[in-house]
Design a binder for these strands. Structure first.
Lengths: 206, 206
DNA sequence: ATATGTGAAATCTTTCACAGCG
DNA sequence: CGCTGTGAAAGATTTCACATAT
């Protein structure tokens, strides 16, 4: 079911399908079609069907898809049918905003640890959490078996923090620093950098 | 030079090349190669050469690329050889963090307007700016000829704010709300949603 | 000697179009 | 009758490999 030969580009679309389906669910929709879902997420109906068919047969011919069933299936496929603990490294402005973001809980995540190396930040409380010294990062993450971390440190510090995360057993890094990280094959990195996205759009302006 | 038939996927890689080259420049590198640049951004050397060749011949055979010349060329191609004024809509936690992000200035952008519809936020100062009432959004953006906006409002408000942005003449939207926006063809949207990226990575965990 | 720029080949991704099932 | 699931076709992207320039 979770074959490693399903293209990355397909996997990348699944969370958007899930997001749209969860919205539908909130609006009380019982049923949808590849046509309707495609219009919402901006993808062809054929592509939705092909993508989903990689994992099973979730629809009913002539009828469409049950929204709640498909939500459930996608949650399983994406492994967000559980709660993943997240570590956050970097308790600056952006780190604070992320730690206070209320969306994690509803979608399979909970921020459980926050680190910073600045004495001015260490010991500060952010919601229910206390900012810990980055010096403790490796032993604490290893002990708590944390697999996912978010990185909101300055670019110059990002690679060395990433190296520590990997040493501590982290397998997924959401990197907000504006630098490409070098990591071994078994570690996945996703990048969130507003500059990159903005520059991609200025290209199309006059 | 800026032909509309250069694939989107190529355009999407250019900002990462530029980012890496600017880093090299700061470290004092004079020259680089498709090989070296490719290793840094995680792309094959052939792909770097093919991508760049869409826009001209920037290298010297046997020698490689001049870092500063290539930076200059990419800035022109991406149209960040100037400063674009940005509007920010949504002055909550995330809006504040973004408004205070120091990276815009060095990369072709400046946040010049901040809006919110919450009376508790309107009138507040964020750095040199004052949060304005969203009710003024359309006339102000139109008058200042703003082409790019960042959206950090709750998901339920995002589509209606986007509609106003488009009415005001905005052509590029960086959307932080967790919803797919419906926009006309001449408007570009990029999405920044941590949940989407995290779910894409949990897929590969056990 | 070395690294670019580029057609041609290989690979990957999307769309088409329809059989099949409720 | 309508909409899924899916082989086959079309289209897009990446890699190969080498002629070419310094």
């Amino acid at each position: 079911m979770t074959d490693r030969d399903i293209p990355d580009i397909v996997v990348g679309r699944l969370p958007r399908y899930l997001q749209a389906l969860e919205h539908m669910q909130l609006s009380g929709a019982q049923t949808t079609s590849s046509q309707e879902l495609g219009e919402i997420v901006g993808v062809s109906a054929a592509q939705i069907r092909k993508d989903l068919s990689q994992y099973g047969e979730f629809g009913k011919q002539g009828k469409g898809y049950s929204v709640s069933y498909l939500v459930h299936q996608l949650q399983q496929i994406l492994k967000v049918d559980r709660v993943w603990p997240l570590a956050l490294v970097g308790a600056g402005n952006l780190g604070h905003a992320i730690a206070n973001y209320p969306g994690f809980g509803q979608h399979g995540f909970r921020v459980t640890l926050i680190f910073d190396n600045d004495p001015a930040h260490i010991g500060a409380r952010i919601g229910p959490l206390t900012v810990q010294d980055s010096a403790q990062l490796v032993p604490v993450l290893r002990e708590k078996k944390i697999k996912i971390a978010m990185l909101t440190v300055p670019a110059r510090a990002a690679q060395s923090v990433a190296d520590q995360l990997i040493e501590a057993g982290v397998r997924s890094i959401l990197n907000y620093a504006s630098i490409t990280l070098s990591v071994p094959d078994h570690v996945h990195v996703q990048y969130i950098d507003p500059i990159i996205y903005l520059q991609r759009m200025t290209y199309y302006l006059d």
